[in-house]
Amino acid sequence: MREIADFFQMGGYAAFVWPALGLTLLVMLGLLVTTLRQLRARQRRLADLEAQGASRRPRREEAPPRQEEATS
C-alpha cells in the first residue's frame, strides 16, 4: 500500500509527471479515434454513392437527351 502511494507521488513531482504522461496518451488516442471515425464515415458515404450509382446508371442511359444538349 505504502509503495503504491509512493509510486503515485513521483517523489513529490506528481503534478508534473502524470499530466505529461496523461496528455501524451490523450493526444495520441484522440488522433487515432478521430482518424478512424473519419475513415469509417467516408467509407460509408462511398459505399452509399456506389450503390446509388449502380442502380441509377441504366436509367440515365434510357432517358432521352435533354433540350440543351440536343440544340447545342
Binding site: L31, T35, Q38, R42, R45, L49, G53
Partner: peptide
C-alpha cells in the same frame, strides 16, 4: 504509431478524393 496512423489517414484521404470526383 505514426506508421499506423499515417497509413489510415492516407487511405481515408484517397477515399475523400474519390468522393470529391464523384
Amino acid at each position: 504509431y505514426f506508421v499506423t496512423l499515417v497509413l489510415l489517414r492516407m487511405k481515408s484521404e484517397l477515399i475523400a478524393a474519390r468522393l470529391r470526383a464523384l
